[in-house]
């Protein structure tokens, strides 16, 4: 493990009078798998939106590899090496699975404004797309219309699209929501595999996944991080138990 690659300092976000994120300090270390947990409405997805440029922070800073990225455009943040998935499936519904993934792969090959070459002839893009399809076990669905696949298949596609640009930091927002036990286990192993050498921040409600996958866990409650530590430390932390895990056990 190395120094922090992504640092949040005093991060705040208000919508009108309502302060959703109330001063978050968080470090994502290079190469670590870091889970962000917390009750519903704690602001986990909002943190992802802030980091990925979907919304701009009200105050505070987001430093990525020594650069301030708070409020930058999503595509600029993606170019720096942060890639994210979405809690609500966010794909190209009327295109095929292969096409969905190819659009994601093409970006890193600098083909945005290319109109003089046929994309089918680009072997590197095709092979990488096929490799990603295989990785998330969707090769049989390559020609299916993405919007017509099952929910869990769309979740897998979403993960593959997030990985396509070879990012240094991956943000996964509830990647396993709606998956069966078997799919969850497979995806959990897949995430461990593909995030080697990269930093991962994951929001997930499945506590088994969180505790087995992540090296560190941060607990977010009402827009503030109340604890950060190894899964063991978080399990033992009294305030976490009270604020979050306790509720779950009691429920």
């Amino acid at each position: 493990m190395s120094d922090a690659i992504l640092t949040l300092r005093g991060l705040k976000k208000s919508f009108g009078d309502i302060e959703i994120i109330r001063g978050v300090d968080l470090d994502l270390l290079g190469g670590e798998r870091h889970a962000l947990i917390g009750p519903n409405g704690a602001g986990k997805s909002t943190i992802f939106h802030l980091i990925s440029g979907n919304i701009a922070p009200t105050a505070g800073e987001i430093m990525f590899a020594g650069k301030q990225i708070g409020g930058a455009q999503p595509q600029a943040i993606n170019h720096l090496g942060i890639s994210r998935s979405f809690q609500i499936t966010n794909i190209f519904p009327r295109l095929t699975t292969f096409e969905n993934l190819r659009l994601a792969v093409m970006r890193a090959h600098g083909l945005q404004y290319n109109f003089w070459r046929l994309v089918d002839n680009n072997r590197r893009v095709r092979e990488q797309t096929e490799r990603l399809l295989e990785m998330v076990r969707l090769q049989a669905r390559a020609d299916s219309i993405a919007g017509e696949m099952s929910y869990s298949e769309q979740r897998s596609l979403e993960i593959a699209m997030t990985l396509a640009s070879d990012p240094r930091v991956i943000l996964l927002d509830e990647p396993m929501a709606g998956m069966s036990r078997d799919e969850t286990e497979y995806t959990s192993n897949l995430i461990r595999e593909v995030t080697k050498g990269r930093a991962l921040m994951i929001v997930e409600h499945d506590m088994d996944v969180v505790f087995s996958l992540s090296e560190r866990v941060s607990v977010l409650v009402y827009g503030q991080v109340i604890a950060t530590g190894t899964p063991e430390e978080i399990r033992r932390n009294a305030s976490v138990k009270e604020a979050y895990l306790g509720e779950e056990v009691a429920a």
Binding site: N54, Q75, N78, R84, N90, L95, L111, D120, S165
Partner: peptide, 23 residues
């Protein structure tokens, strides 16, 4: 059939997602 042509379809389908893919 070109990369820009394929991205044109992406523009129709989901502009928001394209931005988060870095376009």
């Amino acid at each position: 059939r070109t990369p820009l042509g394929r991205l044109t379809l992406g523009l129709r389908e989901n502009t928001h997602r394209l931005r988060f893919l870095g376009y």
